[in-house]
């Protein structure tokens, strides 16, 4: 490996940006636009999908069959994105997503992966000590509920469709979406009604 790669990262970025724009590989405008577009993808997108699945059984079925198509139905841009799989929680089984090899994350519907998802501790422990891991997020999974850990190693991105919390009967989709957080869609927490 070339020693030049040891250069401090901010200087590497400045030099790479300079060279790629000088050579017409990318433009500064494209970089700016891409940052804007990426910032626009947030957990609110996934939360809208979850809320709709809670109130609309036909949408729920379509979402479980093909998450990307269901996202597009709600106007979430999925072009060029990897396939999106949806893991359905039931009263008997809870899903937890990890990528032990890197940090594969359903970015189209959840945005940038959070710091903890990329950490060595999360990646190592999710597959071997998942209940201990959940406790660090304040989540106590009842022993009767089976825990199914999905290691996202390849071409799919996975999100969890959590159980609808009690006490939300009659709520609108907007109200429901507001209680769904990013961790609920990875499986480290459950949606809570305060």
């Amino acid at each position: 490996m070339s020693e030049v790669l040891e250069t401090p990262s901010d200087r590497l970025l400045a030099a790479v940006r300079q060279l790629l724009t000088d050579k017409g590989v990318v433009s500064r405008e494209e970089i700016f636009e891409r940052i804007q577009a990426t910032d626009a993808a947030t957990p609110a997108q996934g939360a809208r999908m979850v809320a709709k699945a809670w109130v609309d059984p036909a949408f729920r079925a379509r979402m479980l069959a093909d998450g990307a198509k269901a996202a597009e139905e709600l106007g979430i841009p999925m072009r060029g994105m990897p396939p999106l799989g949806v893991l359905e929680d039931t009263a008997d089984e809870h899903n937890l997503v990890v990528c032990t090899l890197c940090s594969c994350y359903p970015r189209a519907v959840l945005g940038y992966p959070p710091f903890w998802f990329k950490s060595a501790a999360y990646r190592a422990r999710a597959v071997r000590d998942p209940r201990g891991l959940l406790r660090e997020f304040g989540t106590e999974l009842p022993q009767a509920v089976k825990l199914r850990v999905v290691d996202s190693t390849a071409d799919y991105r996975w999100m969890v469709l959590p159980l609808r919390p009690a006490g939300t009967e009659g709520w609108s989709e907007e109200q429901l979406a507001a209680v769904v957080r990013e961790g609920d869609m990875i499986g480290v927490t459950f949606p809570k009604v305060s």
């Binding site: 597959v127 071997r128 000590d129 201990g132 089976k146 825990l147 996202s152 190693t153 390849a154 071409d155």
Partner: peptide, 19 residues
């Protein structure tokens, strides 16, 4: 089955994408 991989493992199932 996680316990077949690590005897001390928690969790009931481990699901992985494989070619």
């Amino acid at each position: 089955v996680p316990q077949a991989i690590w005897p001390d493992a928690g969790g009931e199932a481990l699901v992985v994408e494989l070619y």
